[in-house]
Design a protein around this nucleic acid. Structure first.
Length: 430
RNA sequence: GGAAGCGUGGCAGAGUGGUUGAAUGCACCGGUCUUGAAAACCGGCAGUGACGCAAGUCACUCGUGAGUUCGAAUCUCACCGCUUCCGCCA
């Protein structure tokens, strides 16, 4: 959520910046709501003050020995009743306006940071850097992960039987490799990057989803379950949701910042609107595992943190020896809540292209404002903190990348050396 | 699922209808004392929002919501959460 003060101060300027990311802010609607709000709130508060003062006077008279049936007291009581009906009217209108205002604000995306290039869609993202040399496959035909995996325990048919499209069953060594990847990532982030491992619920309430920005706008992307008829819980689309919401409605002591968490969780996404895209293989699934890194920091630190946090995700790719490139997303391609995002794209030889495997974002105070997540600053006052997160990495897609980049002519797959401790020392899947 | 109890400021903990947004203690901040520190003493210290150039004024918040009342932390109802005991259970 954006700071309402900012909108009041410079609605035109804000609209212009939002336009860059393809969002049309309804200025007329805002001005209408704001004019109403001012009148309604002032009048409602004035009526309340009147009632309070009258009641206080009654209290004083009673304390001075006047009875309830005293004329002076009776007059005041009648006056208060009149004021109360006035107040009720103003207040009802104000509450309506307030609800409309919230609805209006909750669907306005974050402002892009000034360093974010302006652009319409992913074609206008900017490549920042590249790491690693894509391997040449001169001596044999490159297979994609579906073909390689077929002989190694990657089973889409069983998954289709159990659940339908966009699910995967892993068996044997490939299941172990999947687990090894997650463990490897967790160990690197906890031991080398200073993150605290957390285990969190995979089902969360609507408040949590609103806190990080998935609701109210993106309900169709989520899976939901029902505890009972009117109590809905959502399956997390990313660990970002439960982990970031750890600080919802909290005031963190300043000296505890930065908070750094890492979590390995499954993620559930309905993938509505992506019918027909990436239907082959396990690139786009309804359920996939991800290791997510999250930080809560002081506002002045968030942009340097975005760089180091992205670096933490890059470390994983480098240790695994997977070539990748780092993309700075343009205004039009960024997520709703983000002020600045880097995507890491891993080289997939079978697709002869780079594909997203990590997304690292600075949300500034956008999520914190929705969550009321604050810290105590130097002046001992509560102040909104900044939140960031990044995939470190998407485990399913990392598995795909390993299978494709480390495939051998005989259909086997070499295990990258750094993973072998988690693989019982074996060197190859075959 | 059954029974009982409890939800007050950063924490602990008073407060059962009236100038209570809330005693007190701890923590925290400033000061006095001290060579320095500790102790002691003095002072300050909730959040959010509105109006205002400002000084400041006002409103809301004692788990959440509704109600009773001229007036609610205090009374009523519903909901949520927590604790304990019993039952069931991975």
């Amino acid at each position: 959520m954006l700071d309402i003060q900012l909108l009041r101060k410079d609605i035109e300027g804000i609209a212009k910046r939002l336009k860059q990311r393809g969002f049309d802010l309804d200025i007329a609607e805002f001005n209408k709501l704001e004019a109403e709000r001012k009148k309604l709130q002032v009048n409602s508060e004035k009526s309340k003050a009147d009632i309070r003062n009258i009641s206080k006077m009654i209290g004083q008279l009673r304390a001075a020995g006047h009875g309830i049936d005293d004329e002076e007291v009776g007059d005041l009581m009648n006056l208060s009743v009149d004021k109360a009906s006035e107040e009720k009217e103003w207040d009802a209108k104000f509450k309506l306006n307030d609800a409309e205002f919230t609805r209006f604000l909750m669907v306005v995306p974050n402002l892009p940071h000034e360093s974010v290039p302006t652009g319409k869609d992913s074609d206008e993202n900017v490549e920042v850097s590249r790491w690693g040399e894509p391997r040449k496959f001169d001596d044999f035909e490159v297979k994609d992960h579906v073909d390689i995996g077929a002989g190694l325990g990657l089973d889409f048919e069983s998954a289709a039987k159990l659940s339908g499209a966009r699910f995967t069953v892993l068996k044997g060594g490939i299941a172990r490799l999947h687990r090894a990847l997650a463990q490897f990532m967790l160990d690197v982030h906890t031991r080398e990057h200073g993150y605290t491992e957390v285990y969190v619920p995979y089902m969360v309430n609507a408040d949590s989803m609103r806190g990080t920005g998935q609701l109210p706008k993106f309900e169709e992307d989520l899976f939901a379950t029902f505890k009972n008829a009117d109590e809905k819980l959502y399956l997390i689309p990313t660990a970002e949701v439960p982990v970031t919401n750890l600080v919802r409605d909290e005031i963190v002591p300043g000296e505890n910042l930065p908070l750094k968490f890492v979590a390995h969780t499954p993620c559930f996404r309905s993938e509505a609107g992506s019918y027909g895209r990436d239907t082959r293989g396990m690139i786009r699934q309804h359920q996939f595992d991800k290791v997510e890194i999250v930080q809560m920091v002081r506002p002045e630190d968030s942009y340097t943190t975005l760089e180091t946090l992205t670096g933490h995700a890059e470390t994983i790719l480098q240790k695994l020896g997977l070539p990748y490139r780092k993309m700075l997303l343009c205004t039009g391609d960024m997520g709703f809540s983000s002020a600045k995002t880097y995507d890491l794209e891993v080289w997939l030889p079978a697709q002869n292209t780079y594909r997203e495997i990590s997304s690292c974002s600075n949300f500034e105070a956008f999520q914190a404002r929705r969550m009321q997540a604050r810290f105590r600053n130097e002046k001992n006052k509560p102040e909104l903190l900044h939140t960031l997160n990044g995939s470190g990495l998407a485990v399913g897609r990392t598995l795909v990348a390993i299978l494709e980049n480390y495939q051998n002519a005989d259909g086997s797959v070499t295990i990258p050396e750094v993973l072998r401790p988690w693989m019982g020392g074996i060197e190859k899947l075959s």
